[in-house]
Simulated assay, not measured.
Amino acid sequence: METSLYLPVKTFLESFGYEVKGEVGGCDLVGLSEADPPVVVICELKLTFNLELILQAVDRAGVSDEVWIAARISAKGRGREADKRYRDLCRRLGIGMLGVSDQGEVSVLVSSVSPMPRTNPKRRTRLVKEHRKRRGDPAVGGSTKVPVMTAYR
């Protein structure tokens, strides 16, 4: 399940100083920096790299400073993570790619860059407020069809 990727990716982002919480505003992981205004990092999780993951990341680009996608690295290393076209697409879109091994090790396959400032201030503000209102990290990122503990619950 996607939830198995949550903890390794959360730990990876926290090592860079972000406060990370799961399932905030429909995003699998949201990380905020201590800066004012905060740097917003969003990461979407899937078991495999696919078009749906790219489309989710493109949708999140308007509310974040950095967008990452993360998926499990295929056992033989011949999955999409090895496809140069897929990596080039992520690079051109400014989307970072993280690979998670079966042992939970996270590696950067493509670095995230911010090529275009296409922000949606209203959605971004809503996301930051929701992240700050939550106490602890009550929801595991990547989960589906389970109730999400939000700030108002």
Rank of each mutant, 00 (worst) to 15 (best):
M1Y: 13
T3G: 00
T3S: 07
S4A: 13
P8C: 01
V9G: 05
K10A: 01
T11P: 10
F12R: 09
E14K: 13
E14Q: 15
S15W: 06
F16N: 00
G17T: 02
G17Y: 02
V20M: 08
G22R: 06
E23N: 13
V24E: 00
V24I: 15
C27M: 12
D28T: 03
L29M: 05
V30W: 02
V30Y: 02
S33L: 01
A35N: 06
V39H: 13
V40C: 08
L45M: 13
L45S: 13
K46N: 05
K46C: 00
N50R: 07
N50I: 04
E52V: 01
L53F: 06
V58M: 11
R60C: 01
R60P: 04
R60D: 04
V63M: 13
S64F: 00
E66D: 09
V67W: 03
W68I: 02
A71F: 04
R72A: 05
I73E: 05
S74W: 10
S74C: 03
S74Q: 07
S74N: 08
A75P: 04
K76S: 10
R78I: 15
G79F: 05
R80N: 03
E81Q: 12
A82I: 04
A82K: 11
K84E: 12
Y86T: 04
R87I: 08
R87G: 14
R87C: 15
L89N: 09
L89A: 07
C90T: 04
R92C: 08
G94S: 05
G96C: 11
G96A: 10
G96W: 11
M97T: 02
L98C: 10
L98G: 09
V100M: 10
V100T: 08
S101H: 07
G104P: 15
G104C: 12
G104T: 07
V106K: 06
V106P: 07
V106Q: 06
L109S: 14
V110H: 11
V110S: 11
S111E: 13
S111Y: 15
V113N: 04
V113C: 03
S114F: 12
P115G: 09
P115E: 01
M116E: 11
P117N: 05
T119L: 03
T119Q: 05
N120W: 10
N120S: 03
N120E: 05
R124W: 03
L127R: 08
K129G: 02
K129V: 15
K129Q: 13
E130P: 09
E130F: 05
K133A: 08
K133T: 11
R134L: 05
G136E: 01
G136A: 02
D137F: 08
D137V: 07
P138K: 02
V140K: 14
K145T: 02
K145C: 01
P147I: 15
P147E: 08
V148R: 14
T150N: 13
T150M: 14
T150A: 15
R153E: 12
